[in-house]
Design a protein around this nucleic acid. Structure first.
Length: 226
DNA sequence: GAGGCGATTGCCT
DNA sequence: GGCAATCGCCTCT
């Protein structure tokens, strides 16, 4: 697999047309990158989570932002595949999803962690902002908030298209799903930080590459403070 | 118009 | 392991 893989475009469309729980394990080990005026950072995806659609749809997911229907915030999740859904949470963190399924069907894959394989200097610089101590390389894109920061992703990128391979020249996102023969070993379990039934064994929609140092530690949803 | 809380992170004890 | 930070979105009044 490489950024110039001629089969990448076909694989991207076929994989992202699937419901998220089927697309997610097929994206593990793939390349995901973002090119800006600052440079390019590319990751090998090592951890992700699938998210479905609203109550009453064909893939209801009580853990998803889309569960209560389409809103201005989550509209990208209902759009055509091959785009990104970026959201802002906890007043400080961004996270990025790869939108799945045909337009009208909500679904996406949250990219939770990756190994930086290109642009590690830029990733280090972005992650160093506001920190006193340096970030270990394996942790540069560990966790969805950290990954978004390493890739330079903000709310302004919500709805941006995903190119296959290196894509057209200029700024933007690109994605290269692994060829079938290149898919890594995978493990799966409940999603991290999801409260309610969506965070239980009933939705084992988190996948990761076992033993990879960039995978984030599992955390149960924070109990409500009072 | 107000209040609660979140697909998190990192520092503190 | 506990918990503060920090603010936009969503729900309810």
């Amino acid at each position: 697999m490489s950024l110039s893989d001629p089969g990448a475009a076909a694989r991207l469309l076929s994989v992202l047309s699937l419901p998220a729980p089927q697309a997610a394990p097929r994206l593990l080990g793939g390349l995901f990158g973002h090119r800006t005026a600052e440079g390019v950072v590319t990751l090998r995806i090592t951890e992700l989570e699938a998210y479905g659609g609203p109550a009453g749809s064909d893939l209801p997911d009580p853990g998803a932002h889309t569960y209560r229907g389409r809103t201005a915030r989550n509209a990208s999740m209902f759009g055509p595949p091959g785009h990104v859904y970026v959201y802002f949470t906890y007043g400080m963190h961004h996270a990025v999803n790869l939108v799945c399924r045909p337009e009208g069907h909500a679904g996406g894959v949250l990219v939770r962690a990756g190994e930086v394989v290109e642009g590690i200097g830029l990733a280090r610089a972005r992650r160093a902002v506001g920190r006193a101590t340096p970030v270990p390389d394996a942790a540069l894109a560990r966790g969805p908030g950290n990954l978004a920061k390493a890739l330079g992703i903000g709310l302004g990128h919500d709805g941006a298209p995903l190119a296959a391979g290196e894509g057209p020249a200029g700024d933007g996102f690109f994605l290269v799903p692994p060829a079938e023969d290149d898919r890594p070993e995978t493990a799966s379990g409940p999603r991290t930080g999801v409260s309610g039934p969506g965070g239980t064994d009933a939705f084992p929609w988190r996948w990761w590459i076992p033993g990879d140092p960039s995978v984030s530690p599992y955390r149960a949803a924070a109990p409500r403070r009072r």
